[in-house]
Write a protein that binds this DNA or RNA. Structure first.
Length: 546
RNA sequence: GCUCUUGUAGUUCAAUGGAUAGAAUGUCGGCUUGCGGAGCCGAUGAUCCAGGUUCGAAUCCUGGCAAGAGCACCA
């Protein structure tokens, strides 16, 4: 990676001037007139040494020029004391060539890491709503990014198949409701409003845990199976697949066992077993309730253990809604006090994603007033039907519109989700990127028909903005991976596609007996590959035609 | 009440403490029957308020204001 190599050269030069210790940046200037890379090293060190920044920049520049690598064309000083680097035409051209390779953009920074990533986490008997779609989009993209950086990863999906929410749904089903989502909504409402129903639901909860009532067990098992089968359909459409499914019904007992084995970590209070988070600056949470059942906290504790049993990862990543950020800290704190979980608890990265809010207010699954994953996919498909007749393509474009709208902004912040505005098919959108990719493909196809072969020999003396953009793909991948932030990829791809479309509109690309045409096609090929790879990292398909 | 997160064009989002704050959308005006118009070009328009730190602040600190989330037997 060029930026990385430049940093080394700058560091060496600084060392010769006895400048060490402060961190400086190697960045890509916004304005191409400022070169391909820039550093603020002189500005940083001017502060400590009391020197004039421009003068210090001159000194540093002198040192850099003494062992300037052959791929650097020019080193200049500009503005308050930035040192700008321009790469040689040869180097850029070579890079444009490698951008067409399969490995371009990959790195080995996470080699030998075994990362177990948990995401999506829908609950059987409840709707798969757009919050789960969000977790899935981010989790899938982060997974692909981690693999791109050399990590070995496994995907896990943790699902609440027991607990009060399930009891509510089973209660609703017992009352004749067949759809599990609706049954849950009915049960949840009754639980709040009707004391009689409340007692019944608690009773059902107990019976599910104990499997003591054949009728309830039957309803439960059937509902669970149907619910999980429905989730599988959605995963298929989204292009995601899991290595492990972990259920609360199995982690509950594991959690309880851990709690019993570590009485020094937990306390008894009002008949419940709690963890006093205050001792580490957090808050108290109940792990086993006064009726003796594990709460979500205990199940999640068991989840930590289950994850180490099934694979022995070196690191855990968990993608969930940001509403549970503080909750998660408490469970993790408890886990790190338990000897057998301590090391993995400390190597757990929580990626909170924002809530999806409707312009009217917060979404609630309690009342059944939700946009479900299926309904969203179907509604989007409906609006595209006039343009696309092929079923597979229809799904690819729908999914891309949805995923891109969720991934283009920084994870963690809430998304105001407005069907009309959020799902764009033009401009900064998934379909725009797919369209650009298809357009590249179509050009290459046409060239082939006309017998023109792309060539890396170029009559161009100026670097194209497109080539400069291709140069930075590996750095964006690196940044996105280590910050667990797919939105860097989204932003990058939109910029790349936009540059390509401008390039496309400026002058014809496919022209016979034209040296420039052959090179333009060569660039087109690299752009196509990079778009495809970038879309893959977002979990989006890149069809050749659309 | 306490804790955490977030305030950027009309709207939805970008911007490792750096150079002229970028896009998309909206509105207005253009794009020669020509490689795919889901496209391209132009115009318009923004850092919540008040202090502070520094060569330099949307970004860091303090105080307001506003929105969201969490805070004991739900998940």
């Amino acid at each position: 990676m060029v930026g990385h190599n430049l940093r080394k050269i700058i560091e060496e030069s600084l060392k010769k001037l006895s400048l060490e210790g402060d961190s400086f940046s190697v960045e890509v200037p916004h304005d191409p007139a400022h070169g391909d890379y820039a550093t603020n090293a002189a500005l940083v060190y001017a502060k400590n040494t009391g020197k004039n920044p421009r003068q210090l920049a001159e000194e540093i520049k002198g040192e850099i020029e003494n062992n300037k690598p052959e791929w650097v064309q020019e080193v200049t000083i500009a503005g308050p004391g930035f040192i700008n680097f321009t790469l040689t035409r040869e180097h850029i051209q070579k890079n444009t060539k490698s951008a067409g390779n399969e490995d371009y953009g990959k790195n080995t920074s996470l080699e030998r890491q075994k990362i177990l990533i948990e995401y999506t986490d829908p609950n059987p008997f409840k709707e798969f709503h757009i919050g789960h779609l969000m977790s899935n989009s981010i989790g899938e993209s982060v997974s692909r990014l981690l693999v791109f950086s050399g990590a070995e990863i496994k995907r896990a999906n943790f699902q609440g198949d027991v607990g009060m929410h399930v009891a509510m749904a089973v209660w609703g089903m017992k009352k004749g409701e067949t759809d599990s989502g609706k049954a849950y909504a009915k049960g949840a409402t009754a639980f709040k409003e009707d004391i009689q129903a409340q007692t019944e639901i608690k009773e059902i909860n107990k019976k599910i845990y104990e499997e003591s009532d054949p009728e309830i067990t039957k309803i439960y098992k059937k509902g669970r199976k149907e619910s999980l089968a429905r989730f599988e359909e959605i995963y298929k459409r989204l292009g995601t697949r899991f290595d492990f499914y972990i259920f609360e019904s199995e982690t509950g007992p594991l959690g309880v066992e851990l709690i019993k084995k570590n009485p020094n970590v937990f306390e008894e209070s009002d008949g419940a077993t709690i963890y006093k988070g205050e001792k580490v600056g957090l808050h108290t949470r109940v792990f086993i309730n006064s009726e003796g059942f594990p709460t979500y906290e205990a199940k999640d504790l068991g989840n930590f253990k289950r994850k180490t049993e099934i694979w022995d990862p070196t690191e855990l990543v968990v993608v969930t809604g940001n509403e549970i950020t503080d909750y998660f800290k408490v469970v993790r704190a408890a886990a790190s006090e338990i000897p057998e979980l301590a090391s993995i608890a400390d190597k757990t990265k929580h990626i909170p994603h924002g809530m999806l809010r409707l312009p009217g207010g917060k979404m609630s699954s309690r009342t059944g007033d939700v946009i479900t994953g299926e309904s969203l996919l179907n509604d989007v498909g409906e609006t595209l039907k006039e343009k696309i007749t092929d079923g597979t393509l229809l799904n690819q474009v729908s999914v891309s519109a949805i995923k891109y709208s969720m991934l283009k902004q920084e994870a963690g912040k809430d998304i105001i989700f407005d069907f009309e505005k959020s799902l764009s098919f033009t401009g900064d959108s998934g379909p725009y990127l797919q369209y650009t990719h298809a357009r590249c493909n179509s050009l290459l196809h046409k060239a082939q028909e006309e017998g023109i072969t792309p060539s890396d020999e170029t009559p161009l003396t100026e670097t194209l903005p497109l080539e400069r953009a291709l140069l930075h793909f590996p750095e964006e991948v690196m940044k996105a991976t280590h910050e667990y932030s797919p939105h860097y990829i989204a932003t990058y791809l939109h910029n790349l596609a936009s540059l390509f479309n401008t390039f496309y509109a400026e002058a014809p690309i496919v022209e016979k007996d034209n040296l420039a045409s052959a090179y333009k096609l060569f660039v087109t090929q690299s752009v196509k590959e990079t778009l495809k790879k970038g879309l893959f990292l977002l979990g989006i398909e890149a069809p050749d035609k659309m």
